[in-house]
């Protein structure tokens, strides 16, 4: 994972509640065995007028002109403004991979589904939770003719509008540190391997039936 850098990006508004991971990346693309290359299939059922299949050349597929990401000004969006319970449903990490591969670095919503939230952070995509009033306000701004840009500052835990309005957000210290430094969590846990083995020794005595092979 790359280290998360401060950036200022275009905000694309997706004004729907309960957007599920099946919508973010439809199941047929989960048959791929790579970790990358899902950006063209992001929101496939909403973005295109035909049914996509893995390997399709998406540059020749008919686009749905109504869908927000098909508007030229949002094609380079790096921030997705969402509504409540974004990322609900399936645990597929392919959903954050698709968002990342499209170019999104941050998502803003009133709430995210638990598994999706964790999956985003593992892939350098920052899910930001703001209040309902703040989200409503941002949707109003994003709907205007002037393209909304926000500066995302993870170190300061702020979103800053061009006029200087600042929104503060929370993130737990461990996850923030991993994102800021682009750390691999596996390496961090493996550094505690002795502690894990001690734990196993203890558990082998309290619940020996879980260690049938000794």
């Amino acid at each position: 994972m790359k280290a998360f850098k401060q950036f200022c990006g275009v905000v694309a508004p997706l004004d729907r509640i309960n957007v599920d991971t099946d919508a973010i990346l439809p199941k047929q693309f989960m048959k791929l065995i790579s970790k990358y290359g899902y950006g063209d299939y992001l929101f496939d059922n909403w973005r295109y007028q035909d049914e996509g299949q893995p390997g399709d050349d998406c540059s020749i597929r008919p686009l749905n002109p109504q869908f927000v990401l098909n508007q030229p000004r949002f094609r380079s969006a790096e921030i997705l403004l969402c509504r409540d319970n974004f990322g609900c449903g399936s645990s597929r990490e392919h959903a954050p991979w698709a968002l990342r591969d499209f170019g999104f670095k941050a998502l803003i919503s009133t709430s995210f589904a638990d598994i999706f939230y964790g999956n985003c952070l593992k892939n350098g995509v920052l899910p930001i939770v703001l209040t309902e009033d703040e989200i409503d306000h941002l949707f109003t701004l994003a709907a205007s003719d002037v393209t909304l840009r926000l500066e995302v500052n993870l170190a300061a835990q702020t979103l800053v509008q061009s006029q200087g309005v600042v929104h503060h957000f929370e993130i737990d210290a461990f996850r923030k540190n991993c994102l800021m430094l682009g750390l691999n969590e596996i390496g961090l846990t493996l550094a505690q391997a002795d502690t894990v083995r001690l734990y196993e020794d203890m558990r082998r005595t309290t619940e020996p039936w879980l260690f049938p092979d000794g």
Binding site: K35, S91, R92, E93, P96, D114, I115, G118, N119, K122, N123, D172, F174, E185, I186, T189, L190, A193, V196, E200
Partner: peptide, 21 residues
Amino acid sequence: AFGIGTSEIEHVLATQCLRVS
């Protein structure tokens, strides 16, 4: 018992552990 993402699958494979909120 809970569902996890692919990065977490790898984490459990490698370490038998998972960091959980």
